[in-house]
């Protein structure tokens, strides 16, 4: 049973989308990331994605690349991830981890799942692991009660959307544009079409990410998605103005997801 299902149900009951915020663990430091993620939860994120800094983040644009490099330069170790997750869970927040697969493979897939579950983490988002290669993770996530959040993209075929949805739990992550992470001025018009296609194959909630940075964009996405995912914009605000700036952005986005713009879907 997915621990995230309840969250999405509650948001649906309030006729709003969930706000999902991303920040890398260890950015700018390990204690610093705990404070920032704590502030995101306290000021309106329904769920946070705790990123794992990686040396070769091929799906990320310059903002998150720079944050990952800074975290690694500051000495971030993978074992510290679980403390960051625990700090969120202990404070009553919900956390999933977003990670490239090699660090998990190196740590040991089952050991990673075990340690994440015991820290109170709810699942893992896997940007470079597709269900076709995920046999070990399917088993480990079942064993330790974690949600598996796979990605779908505008280029995904119907068959792949169906098989990816079948392998997923918690929610499905729809990348709204073809491209790397990074804030954009305009929300892609591919997003509503992708969400429409996904809904033909699954009842799972759909979170939409890549490019969101304002309350107005969040409101637009909330019109057709179950979750609005914001990453690079949080990293930028954290770099510019620390905890206060992160709170301000959270509040603006939280307002946005509560005022969905009706779209023809």
């Amino acid at each position: 049973m997915s621990k995230l299902a309840g969250m999405f149900e509650a948001c649906r009951a309030e006729r709003r989308a969930a706000l999902i915020g991303y920040l890398p663990a260890g950015y700018p430091t390990v204690p610093g990331s705990k404070e920032l993620l704590g502030a995101m939860v306290a000021s309106g994120c329904d769920l946070v994605e705790v990123g794992v800094p990686f040396s070769d983040p091929v799906m990320d644009g310059p903002t998150i690349q720079a944050a990952a490099e800074e975290a690694l330069r500051a000495g971030f170790r993978l074992s510290e991830l679980f403390g960051v997750v625990d700090s969120i869970a202990s404070a009553g927040g919900r956390a999933v981890v977003m990670t490239y697969w090699n660090p998990v493979h190196r740590y040991g897939v089952d050991a990673f799942a075990r340690d994440l579950a015991s820290a109170g983490g709810l699942g893992v988002i896997t940007p470079d692991l597709v269900p076709d290669e995920a046999e070990q993770w399917l088993e480990a996530s079942e064993r330790h009660g974690l949600d598996r959040i796979f990605l779908v993209a505008p280029s995904s075929t119907e068959e792949r959307i169906a098989s990816t949805a079948k392998a997923s739990s918690g929610f499905l992550y729809a990348t709204s544009v073809m491209g790397v992470t990074g804030a954009r001025d305009v929300v892609s018009n591919a997003a509503p079409e992708l969400v429409r296609r996904v809904r033909e194959h699954t009842d799972l909630p759909v979170g939409v990410g890549l490019g969101v940075r304002s309350g107005a964009q969040a409101a637009e996405l909330a019109g057709f998605a179950d979750g609005v995912i914001v990453g690079s914009a949080f990293v930028t605000r954290a770099a510019e103005g620390g905890e206060r700036a992160v709170r301000e952005l959270t509040e603006e986005l939280a307002e946005g997801v509560r005022n969905p713009v009706a779209t023809i879907g």
């Binding site: 091929v58 799906m59 697969w101 090699n102 940007p127 470079d128 692991l129 597709v130 076709d132 290669e133 796979f150 990605l151 779908v152 993209a153 505008p154 280029s155 995904s156 075929t157 792949r160 990816t164 990348t175 073809m178």
Partner: peptide, 22 residues
């Protein structure tokens, strides 16, 4: 068919690129 030489190889890639690889 999935690109494995014994246990090696495969596709550890973003879903967005799977269609192009196919």
């Amino acid at each position: 068919a999935k690109g494995h030489f014994g246990p090696w190889g495969g596709r550890f890639m973003p879903e967005a690129l799977i269609a192009a690889l196919d």
